Computed example of a mutant assay.
Amino acid sequence: MGNFDIKDFKGVIPAVLTVFDKNENIDEVGMRQLISYLIEKGVDGLYLTGSTGEGFIMDSEERKRVVEIVIDEASGRVPIVVHVGAIGTKISIDLAKHAEAVGADGISSVPPFYWKFNENQIVKYYEDIANSCNLPMIVYNVPLAGLLGMNVIKRLASIDNVKGIKYTGMSHYEITQIKDEIGKDFLVYSGCDEMAMSGLLAGADGIIGSFYNIMPELFINIYNAISEKDIEKAQRLQRQAVEIILYSLKVPSFYAGMKAVLRWRGINAGYCRRPFENLTEEEEKEFKEGYKRIKETYKITGVEFLDEL
Rank of each mutant, 00 (worst) to 15 (best):
D27H: 10
D21V: 09
A15V: 10
T18M: 03
G11W: 06
D21A: 11
K22C: 11
V12G: 00
L17W: 07
I39K: 08
I35D: 03
G42D: 11
L38C: 07
M31H: 10
V29Y: 09
N25K: 15
K10Q: 15
N23K: 13
F9N: 03
G11R: 01
E28D: 03
V16T: 15
G30I: 05
E24P: 03
V29T: 09
E40D: 15
I35C: 14
E40I: 00
M31P: 10
I35E: 08
I6A: 06
G42Y: 07
V16K: 04
I13C: 04
S36C: 05
K7A: 06
I26K: 04
M31Y: 02
Q33L: 13
Y37V: 11
D27I: 04
I6Y: 10
V43K: 08
N25F: 06
G30S: 11
N25G: 01
T18V: 10
L38G: 04
L38K: 05
V19C: 10
Q33C: 09
K10C: 07
Q33G: 13
N25L: 15
A15R: 02
A15G: 00
I6F: 14
G42L: 04
T18A: 06
D27C: 07
F20H: 08
G11I: 03
E40P: 07
L34I: 13
N25M: 11
Y37P: 04
K41G: 07
T18G: 00
Q33F: 02
V12L: 05
V16I: 13
D8F: 10
L38S: 12
F20T: 14
S36M: 10
I13N: 08
K22A: 13
E28L: 02
F20R: 12
K41D: 14
I6R: 02
I13L: 01
D8A: 12
Q33R: 08
E28R: 05
D27A: 01
Y37C: 06
R32I: 11
V12N: 04
I6T: 05
Y37Q: 00
K10V: 15
I26H: 06
S36T: 14
I26Q: 10
V19M: 03
I35M: 11
I26V: 12
K22M: 13
Y37G: 02
K10A: 10
R32H: 07
K7Q: 08
E28W: 00
V43S: 01
F9P: 02
V16W: 03
V12D: 00
E24A: 09
V19F: 08
D27L: 15
Y37H: 10
D27V: 12
F9H: 08
Q33V: 09
D21R: 11
M31N: 15
L34A: 09
K10E: 13
G11L: 02
F9M: 05
M31R: 14
L17K: 09
F9G: 03
K41E: 15
E24G: 02
A15Y: 00
M31A: 14
Q33S: 12
I35G: 08
L34F: 08
E28A: 11
I6Q: 07
I35V: 15
F9D: 08
F9V: 03
V43H: 03
V19D: 06
P14I: 01
I26F: 05
V29D: 07
K7E: 03
K10P: 07
E24I: 01
S36A: 05
V43W: 01
V12F: 06
A15H: 01
I26G: 11
L17F: 10
V43Y: 02
N25D: 12
K7H: 11
F9C: 00
